[in-house]
Design a protein around this nucleic acid. Structure first.
Lengths: 248, 248
DNA sequence: TAATTAGTGCCAAAATTTGTCACCAATTAT
DNA sequence: ATAATTGGTGACAAATTTTGGCACTAATTA
């Protein structure tokens, strides 16, 4: 039996049985007592909390709260989770945010540092505000799932982004813009971009964007987005409390 | 050098340099060409997308989108993330929910099946509704971070839960109740429980609960919570569309 | 055609993991 | 007090896995 499978089997058996002796585990996984002891040591090192008691009636016991996942998430999935929690936190009182934060912090730790930098820069362009009650929500659609990776890439590479846009009147147009920020006016999400053709900022409702793609070989400079910004994506990131409110 | 560290180093070098030949990587990690080739094969098996080109000027290239995390989250952290995304999804139009779902599905996959069962059962007791505009929010406080594990444990073990409660008038009392569900009326979160002393359901605002603990050795039966239930925690779980609306 | 680079199969050498054994510490039952 | 049971450690040889070297193929560029 593989060493990894053995670890998994031992953890599973401990979970199922509640308590088990080393000899029982050794028989279960088909290995020697010594090897199981080494495995237990490795599991403890990996963060599993395993209590032990000597003597007759003793044995090992696994703290069920210490069970850990080992999922491997892609960067885009991590971004999506982060955005969810960040937006939720900003918009309302999210309970258990400490736990969610701890999880996200662990995820962050396991990412390469340059990806963490990207990620924080990306979240800093997330603006959250209040939706005007006059807004028409009748044609609210679903957001293209390829939009996030495309925007992420264009934003970080600082290259232009091209997509098809359907405006409020249903008119379609092809756009090529500089993606600068995301705006959340729940339940609406907007892409805030500088349109070089029209020489001005434009808001694009994300559910009206289709066929997004990055225009390789282009580049643009970051612009100051005319928005109130008071959202800190992480609780451990101290947001500057200075009122940098601006209106264009 | 350790095999894991070698894999990490190779992935990091590929990210940093954009492109690299096998001989370069072999020199970087201090291993032979053959070993690096085996490592590349293992990385590909693990989900890293690595392109290769033969001939002069060729080499290996890593798709940055395929970079993966390897964070190990505790069950409580996964719960917190799930609740965030589920509540967010239910309350409004959450973009990129497909990606967040994919991430959560992966996390779920890596958990033992009995934990997944627990988790789904737990999320099924999450009710989301609309807050009455009359509600006083002036004393909105922070929710005790130990509440989630305590509730989770009490709910799954079906044992009583004891805590201190501070009601709207500031009066404090000690409670011992059967936890049945969670109710979200954003930004307020409620614990819905059957109070055996008072013989009826009671709502406890979570930010007014302190010192929660499970009463071991007790047990209770699950009761039908008098709530409208139309929230599906997962997109891939088909919610029964039958109108099981009930009012006590 | 020559040079360069990815990729595979094979086998012995190197390294790591495993099992055995002796032994210690703690706890329970007699 | 003593025996029995159970967790835990160190040392060393045996078993297993990983690694390196080699020969070779396939693709691409100059």
């Amino acid at each position: 039996m593989n060493i990894r499978r053995r670890h998994d089997t031992i953890a599973r058996t401990l979970r199922r049985n509640g308590t088990a002796t080393i000899d029982e585990l050794a028989h279960e996984v088909g290995a020697s007592r010594r090897t199981v002891l080494r495995d237990i040591s490795a599991l403890r090192y990996d963060g599993f909390v395993i209590y032990s008691e000597s003597g007759p009636g003793g044995g090992l016991q696994l703290d069920p709260q210490s069970i850990q996942t080992s999922a491997r998430l892609s960067v885009a999935e991590v971004f999506a989770l982060l955005i969810s929690v960040a937006a939720m936190r900003a918009a309302q009182n999210l309970p258990f945010s400490d736990l969610a934060d701890a999880g996200l912090a662990k995820i962050e730790k396991s990412l390469p540092s340059e990806k963490v930098r990207d990620l924080r820069r990306f979240l800093q362009c997330l603006h959250i505000g209040q939706l005007s009650p006059k807004q028409d929500l009748s044609d609210l659609g679903k957001i293209d799932p390829t939009l996030l990776p495309a925007f992420e890439n264009a934003f970080l590479e600082q290259c232009l982004m091209r997509f098809q846009y359907r405006d409020a009147k249903g008119a379609k147009s092809s756009r090529e813009v500089e993606p600068q920020a995301m705006l959340v006016l729940q339940p609406l999400w907007y892409l805030v971009a500088w349109d070089p053709m029209r020489e001005g900022f434009r808001h694009f409702r994300m559910d009206r964007i289709s066929a997004p793609e990055c225009v390789t070989g282009t580049s643009f400079r970051r612009r100051h987005v005319p928005f109130e910004k008071d959202v800190s994506p992480y609780s451990d990131t101290v947001a500057p409390s200075s009122p940098n409110v601006q209106t264009k």
